[in-house]
């Protein structure tokens, strides 16, 4: 297989995960308000899938080198942390110009967009490993995007934004995925020695999102036994699913 078709595949896979974000807006076609508990449970499912995917990334990375994978993990954590800090500062400087509701909307879409940059890198890098890994990571990210779209719509819709625009903003927040997946893939292709760093980076970025956002938010809105059961079951399911691909 030549490089060009694979590059196209990477783009399509990452675009697919971005479109999955728009699916999150669909439940709002039936009801005006989706309960925070449902969003929390969806986040718990996403947390389990992403942790399982990180396990797989680390196992794959360790095959090429344990040290580089670990350095990659730390870089991934640092990247998301720095990106979120940057967003927070930006948001403060915008605060005078926009109202409180608009500020929350902007923050929501902005934070999600920064996230998806790291997720795009994850999808692209995973194509440098085995085919099974790429499919598993793409699926984990796509499923994770659905509650993200749900969360964005939950903020925008009650403020009078139309359903189509909600779906549009949801997909927009994930557009960095196809845009960054391709360069990330080409980079690890060109510099094979970068692969374990890249795999570690993707794992670190995803784990940080799970522990810093998905889980604490889920515990805030749903009973912890339900969150724990969903997250653990989907973590194991992801690991097994990845094994059989």
């Amino acid at each position: 297989m030549s490089d060009v078709p694979v590059t196209v595949t990477v783009f399509w896979y990452a675009l697919l995960t971005a479109l999955a974000t728009g699916v999150g807006a669909l439940p709002f076609a039936l009801v005006r308000v989706v309960s925070p508990r449902l969003v929390a449970l969806a986040n718990a499912v996403a947390a389990g899938l992403m942790l399982g995917a990180s396990f797989a990334l680390v196992v794959e990375g360790t095959r090429y080198g344990g040290g580089p994978t670990e350095i990659g993990v730390l870089l991934g954590v640092a990247f998301v942390l720095a990106a979120e800090r940057l967003m927070r500062d930006r948001e403060v400087s915008f605060a005078g110009a926009v109202g409180a509701g608009a500020k929350r909307m902007l923050l929501m879409v902005g934070v999600m967009t920064v996230h998806s940059a790291a997720e795009g890198v994850a999808v692209g890098v995973s194509f440098g490993g085995t085919g099974a890994l790429a499919l598993a990571i793409t699926m984990a990210i796509a499923v994770h995007n659905v509650p993200e779209g749900l969360a964005i719509t939950a903020v925008l819709r009650p403020r009078g934004v139309s359903l189509v625009r909600c779906a549009g903003w949801s997909v927009f927040s994930s557009l960095p995925q196809p845009l960054l997946a391709v360069p990330a893939f080409l980079f690890v292709q060109a510099f094979t020695s970068a692969l374990p760093y890249g795999l570690g980076f993707a794992a670190g970025a995803m784990m940080f999102m799970v522990f810093e956002e998905l889980l604490p938010e889920a515990y805030g809105e749903a009973p912890r036994a339900a969150v724990a059961a969903l997250a653990s079951l989907f973590l194991v399911a992801m690991v097994v699913f990845q094994h059989y691909l």
């Binding site: 522990f211 889980l215 912890r224 036994a225 969150v227 724990a228 059961a229 653990s232």
Partner: peptide, 11 residues
């Protein structure tokens, strides 16, 4: 182990 982390330690 995973369930204990999710149900006891992290919350």
């Amino acid at each position: 182990l995973v369930y204990l982390v999710m149900a006891e330690l992290l919350p």
